[in-house]
Design a protein around this nucleic acid. Structure first.
Lengths: 309, 309
DNA sequence: ATAAGGATAAATATATTCTTTATCCTTGAA
DNA sequence: TTCAAGGATAAAGAATATATTTATCCTTAT
């Protein structure tokens, strides 16, 4: 009835011998060399003899372990097969389906930071990313009005809709009469955005803030904010969109809010996230969710501050 | 670069499936069923799906684990081979060489209690016990005057030498003149005892306490106290020996101290234990040493109380 | 000489892992 | 149906184990 203990020590031992150095073995386990050394040492203390001889450049097995080495590596090869079959990798993957504009303009830049801090986590957002899409439901859906569909929904942030323009075009408004200022400038329309969110488009904006011009619904139509934004940058015209999506550009000064924050309005619905409960059991997911909610809260506060000022 | 984590969970899983119940698997690992359940649950939460279906009488693998099962059992079979080759069993063995009388009369009864509390620990005392003797040094030596031989020596307890007799023989001394009381009674000599400890024998005792009789060095000679003690019990005569070795008998009243504790003297040397430093790294050894020293201290105190009263 | 790479020690902080206790559920017997 | 037995689980606190950090030592290249 010999007890099979010190499994992690055996794993450390096998890796250290295979890699030839504690440092390399530690890296493979994403821990520090000191920790790995302690693991091996724990087993050595337990057994009362040395398992590896620490040398000039790395480590080598002592004569006592050599007879066991083949079995040791075989065991861990088998276990690696097990992890493949049990789909351990899946654990570090996060699959997201999200509102395209939000994903491209709000999530993407923040996700880069997150991935830097969590290099083991692999993402697949709307089918593209570090790993190929998987069949079945995503771990997380982001969009508008998900509440109806079921259970737990997390509120992210509410957007603020207002016109934005390039510095060039904004400057051209100088000195023009306020209510007809936009006469003659092209309006860029984003179909999907308002259709999905139920929010205002140019016609509603003109009506709400007492502006006038002809051909309110004329102008180029874009499917996604990102495309419209590039057009705006190229001085193609004025765009009406959520501030959170262009916040970075505005803060950087590469896009302007020609009518200030006065002439805009809060979005009808906030962005919402729905996480699959079963996915949330995975710590990587729970961790991501905590981060996402915190980022959204920060955005909410940043927007409020901007709009109030 | 899939991480091989949750090794203990995998071990628990394999055992649970092989044994068919959490309880049995837990017993095999000497932990509670609750703990084993937690191990498996941790992996289930990590992966996000169930690994075993808990049923009426025990557990069975879910369809997800079945493909991995063969590899899982193979892995742990290999690891068990490794433990055999690395001699994990040795860890729970304690090899002792000790002064025979002390081992038989002081250690043996106490060891029974220790083994009850630590059933995993196997002993080999002076070559006999739960496991066969091993080549090489013992983990622990007990005897007199080990200090000279080297490094760390633990003092156990100092003995108190005095005459003991059966109730029968003690009673026969009633009314006899004190200094010649033993005239005519057989004296039992224990050769090895005094030779090893350098302590007093009958001749020295007679001289020291002013007793007289003829044929001081005559009488039966025994190699070990245990043998002499049986003779004493059979009313064969008077024995001079360490109180710690017969303390239980005296306390129980089956042996008496016919001259009280006045006419005796402390042993020249205390019993000492020397543990191999390398062995002490093994927790079972360290635990045993703590216990041994505590027991010896208790004996020391018990002897002092008895002698003082 | 003097870095550079690697291993280790000590101390602290953090996590995991276990036990305990009580409850729930299923099964088989009265 | 009711009850008791066997097994699994939940919750909480206690006990361990495990990791990071920082500084130091040692060997080998430059």
């Amino acid at each position: 009835m010999t007890q099979l203990t010190h499994l992690r020590s055996l794993q450390a031992l096998e890796l250290a011998i295979r890699k030839g150095s504690l440092k390399a073995a530690a890296a493979a386990l994403s821990i520090t060399p000191a920790a790995l050394g302690q693991r091996i040492k724990a087993l050595e203390d337990y057994l009362g003899y040395e398992l590896i001889s620490r040398g000039r450049s790395g480590v080598r097995p002592t004569s006592e372990v050599k007879p066991a080495l083949a079995h040791l590596t075989a065991a861990f090869r088998e276990l690696e097969t097990v992890t493949r079959l049990l789909d351990f990798q899946r654990v570090d993957e996060i699959h997201i389906t999200a509102h395209t504009d939000w994903a491209q303009l709000w999530l993407a830049p923040r996700l880069e930071v997150y991935k830097q801090a969590n290099p083991n986590t692999l993402f697949c957002v709307n089918g593209v990313g570090d790993v190929p899409a998987r069949i079945g439901d995503a771990d997380c859906d982001v969009g508008f009005g998900l509440s109806g569909k079921g259970d737990e929904v997390d509120m992210l942030h509410r957007d603020y809709l207002l016109p934005v323009a390039s510095t060039e075009n904004a400057a051209r408004l100088e000195g023009l009469p306020h209510d007809t200022a936009l006469e003659g400038f092209p309006l860029l329309h984003i179909d999907a955005y308002t259709a999905q969110s139920g929010d205002i488009g140019w016609p509603e904006w003109f009506q709400q803030f007492g502006h006038r011009r002809t051909g309110l619904s004329r102008g180029v139509r874009y499917q996604w904010v990102l495309q419209a934004m590039e057009a705006v940058r190229a001085d193609a015209g004025f765009m009406l969109c959520g501030l959170s999506l262009v916040h970075a550009e505005v803060a950087r000064g590469s896009l302007l809010m020609p009518f200030g924050t006065q002439e805009g309005c809060w979005a009808k619905h906030p962005f919402e996230a729905r996480f699959r409960p079963v996915s949330l059991k995975r710590s990587a997911l729970a961790h991501f969710r905590d981060w996402l909610l915190a980022e959204a809260r920060a955005t909410d506060e940043a927007l409020s501050r901007t709009v109030e000022s």
